[in-house]
Design a protein around this nucleic acid. Structure first.
Lengths: 160, 160
DNA sequence: TCGGGTATTGATATGTTATAACATCCGGTC
DNA sequence: GACCGGATGTTATAACATATCAATACCCGA
């Protein structure tokens, strides 16, 4: 057990479920979950925290799966494009998708203390941002919504 | 005349207004708008586009105001902390605040083609993100909302 | 099974963004 | 004048990301 969205859950099941879904989706969509890609997804799933590309690369290189930056970035690009992972812009880091299989516009709650990340969902073109875009004639292709602050666990022990 | 929020306006007045407001705010709040800081703000105000720290540094160094990265980053940090500029996380770049003087949670419409940026405003803790945070017990300190796509001007001439 | 196209991987180098660390200067104050 | 704090100068390096080109694996149709 560990936390997801700052709540306890059966993490082992959560990881294997996600991997199974990813494999199913790859089979269905003619995508290849190669060893490096699969391992990177596992690494991201292992924590509900954002990992940098070089964190990932460190694990890969310890396991003999590759030592150069492009190895990590290619795998991460694949996972992000396939919807299996998201990039956290505010951290220049990556996290496994918590809603694997659903096409969605994610929003993130990012703890600045422990770097854990909860993935929430949003109504895409609703709200004031969508209104502003329509008014301006701006055509939205992708939206980044990231809130930073303190998760419940870090609010108690933590200093500013 | 050029564009702001993708609309034409009197840009000369817009720049001098913003500088005047920034000076007034510094005087009132015991902040120092030193030459480098003032010049960086001018550079950002000169365009309603995001500029990278090294773009800024290029201008500064051409003008004899400093050649090393910390010069640009210190000035940008000051401007962001003072609320005179915003950082665009999705671009690792900076832009002058379009609502100088108001305490606000900005949202951005970012054109991926011409890099122009419109600043809109948001209701901070309203909407699904605020709900999700309350449910989770997450304490939001700062929110990043950035939509990327095509501005009206770039929708016509532009390819994908 | 052969060839040809496409996706993936390997490898090298480099580009881009950002900060650490420490010295120095400058303006105000006691 | 001695001190203090903020700002700046300077050097070095950390952290993040991509371009490029060669080699290999995989699939598919002739």
């Amino acid at each position: 057990m560990t936390t997801i969205g700052f709540e306890t859950h059966d993490h082992h099941a959560c990881v294997s479920d996600a991997l199974a879904k990813a494999e199913a989706r790859c089979a269905a969509s003619d995508l290849r979950l190669t060893p490096v890609r699969r391992r990177v997804l596992e690494l991201l799933l292992a924590e509900h925290r954002a990992l940098g590309a070089y964190d990932i690369l460190g694990h890969l290189s310890a396991e003999g799966l590759g030592t150069q930056p492009p190895v990590a970035y290619r795998a991460l690009d694949f996972l992000v494009k396939a919807g299996f992972a998201h990039r956290i812009e505010a951290l220049n880091a990556y996290i496994a998708c918590a809603h694997l299989g659903a096409d969605h516009t994610p929003a993130f709650l990012i703890c600045r203390s422990c770097r854990s990340v909860a993935e929430s969902d949003t109504a895409p073109s609703q709200g004031r941002l969508g209104d502003a875009a329509r008014d301006a004639g701006f055509q939205i292709e992708h939206t980044v919504i990231e809130a930073q602050g303190l998760c419940p666990a870090c609010q108690t022990g933590d200093a500013a």
